[in-house]
Design a protein around this nucleic acid. Structure first.
Lengths: 346, 346
DNA sequence: TTGTAGGCGTTATCAT
DNA sequence: ATGATAACGCCTACAA
């Protein structure tokens, strides 16, 4: 048992006194092989414990039926759902999935890309790290025409597709809601990052202010890394302001929660003194008190759509152009943290 | 550019007018190749855009330098940390990592195991799904002596190592703490699962009761799937009890939080009416009010230790027996949710 | 309907 | 110090 010898199609062939080619074809359910022979082959294969050698097969076929995934972090419900969505679609279409995390670091992202490249993935699904500013670490893919699809945290690139939501619109809606609740001065907390998601959320926030005759001020935007700790830091910044804002729109729920907790500890009343809107519909938004108003979008759907787009491209099924932006819908969820006007709290 | 041709060692050899064997050796930094030749080879390889073909290499070498990981879910801080720990150690030792999630389903776990097996991983790291009751889906690994290391959610098996914490002791400590705070009747909420982690936590809970002359009662254990929703369900169950308990020990933080929120909504005061202790030190434990007392253990460390153990085994470095249980330490973190006696709240 | 044979890119053994 | 060559296991064009 120590030296387990792998069974090959040659072994099966010998046993069955037929040629390896027939075995190979039989195993692939080739139409020209007689049903009887096929049956014998399958039975022998099963009995002998045969397993296909992926390496030999991939070496021969020059493809792997595997897609690579790079995400910033694997620690959120959102990402878990994205990956479930990817796996679901990919597996159903006969593809394997290799997952890796960049830990929000552009260099780790590049390292992962290289590993996946060397593993000869047929295509790549990527959500970019905080500090990724350009896409040159994917050049090896572009050069070889290996399709790359970005999702959520995306970047424009001639030969790639993007799957995402309308962040500007969602942010606009969140900010507008705060204004409608009576907020006169709204602070925005976001990432010090050039990622589309943050730029667009900022832009939607600005637009909502402008459209409602509120002057946008640079100093009302607080930058950080959007962790809970960053939220607490932002609370410090807010408390030092000459005049306190009466609304805060945060680019993610975690950070919003961190900020809310820190402010509450200083005696600020939410939403009476300061109303909050977050982003992502993270489970924590239903734990914090008051519950956090937020923007919800389906990770599962993003994952599924991104995988479908990639695989359709791979198999030539797609009737869609190479370059493409797919915008999925998001949903605004109103909870108590933003309801200044007395209504029933949700 | 459409048909990018891969560069092989033959191409390099031809260009340099040397043999492919020399190129292969040069690329591997073989000691017998002259430094000058090596330099020429490396330069040519770089210039020509050579990349090693893993398939050919693996086919030839019969190993992949890759380890597979199967976890129940990728949505917790804990698992993200575990994976970071695994990747850190593995990459440093020249191994790649393939990650997959079972979504708490034993059959998905089996499917993933099969995929990883077919990908010829050199070893496997597994944290078991809720409903996994036996290990026959890893038989193909056992049969071929491919090492499997279980972590956190483990199961005894003759040829595997386990990396985990002392769950019984941690649960004992949590329960004892509640008793010391004056709790006379403590409910335990846990998973309806045969996993060691839950059995041992239950056992630690029982032992603490017994040691403090509190009679254990079957009906004080509530089973569920440990989600937030399950916590809310458990709250229902608790509220229906003839006499309310004054303490609850929950096998994970998420579920504890769900339970706390539901009870609070019904007017129960925490910790005055019912004190809470959770498990895992999930970030949410610091969001819920009052903050949740919990047991903390390092996912990063578990990942690192598990990976080290596996890879040492793989490379023959290990002086440790085949079968082995590695117990890491955990830490009890006291927060307001369990402090019935007046002290400063943490 | 089945068989023969060459090649996918590497590495290791043996020879030089 | 370097070269020739066989082998890893599979697939497929071509032959029968």
């Amino acid at each position: 048992m120590e030296n387990y010898k792998e069974v090959t199609i040659y072994d099966i062939a010998k046993k069955l006194k037929i040629s390896p080619a027939t075995v190979s074809r039989g195993l692939q359910d080739h139409p020209l092989i007689s049903p009887k022979t096929k049956k014998r082959i399958f039975e022998a294969a099963h009995k002998m414990g045969y397993r296909q050698n992926h390496f030999a097969r991939n070496l021969r076929n020059q493809k792997t039926d595997t897609i690579g995934v790079i995400v910033p972090r694997l620690n959120s419900y959102f990402m878990s759902a994205v990956i479930a969505g990817i796996e679901h679609f990919a597996n159903q279409r006969g593809y394997n999935v290799i997952i890796s995390q960049s830990s929000e670091s552009s260099s780790k992202e590049a390292a992962n890309a290289k590993i996946l490249f060397n593993n000869r993935v047929d295509g790549l699904l990527v959500s970019l790290a905080y500090d990724t500013k350009e896409l040159s670490h994917f050049d090896s893919f572009f050069r070889r025409n290996i399709p790359v699809v970005f999702f959520d945290r995306v970047m424009e690139h001639g030969s790639c597709s993007n799957v995402l939501i309308d962040n500007a619109k969602a942010a606009y809606e969140g900010t507008k809601h705060l204004i409608e609740q009576g907020c006169k001065r709204i602070v925005h907390i976001t990432a010090s990052s050039q990622q589309n998601v943050y730029l667009e959320r900022l832009q939607g926030y600005k637009q909502a202010l402008t459209d409602h005759k509120i002057k946008f001020k640079e100093e009302d935007v607080i930058f950080g890394n959007l962790t809970m700790e960053a939220g607490a830091d932002a609370a410090e910044t807010i408390l030092k302001m000459k005049k306190l804002p009466d609304g805060v729109f945060v680019a993610n729920d975690n950070c919003a929660v961190g900020c809310m907790l820190a402010l509450k500890q200083k005696g600020i009343k939410i939403p009476q003194d300061i109303a909050f809107v977050g982003f992502n519909n993270d489970p924590v938004s239903k734990v914090v008190e008051p519950n956090l108003t937020t923007i919800s979008y389906s990770g599962y759907e993003i994952g599924e759509v991104a995988a479908r787009h990639l695989i359709n491209h791979l198999t030539g099924v797609s009737s869609i152009d190479n370059t493409n932006t797919i915008v999925l819908r998001s949903e605004f969820i109103i909870r108590a943290s933003s309801l200044k006007k007395k209504k029933k709290l949700l």
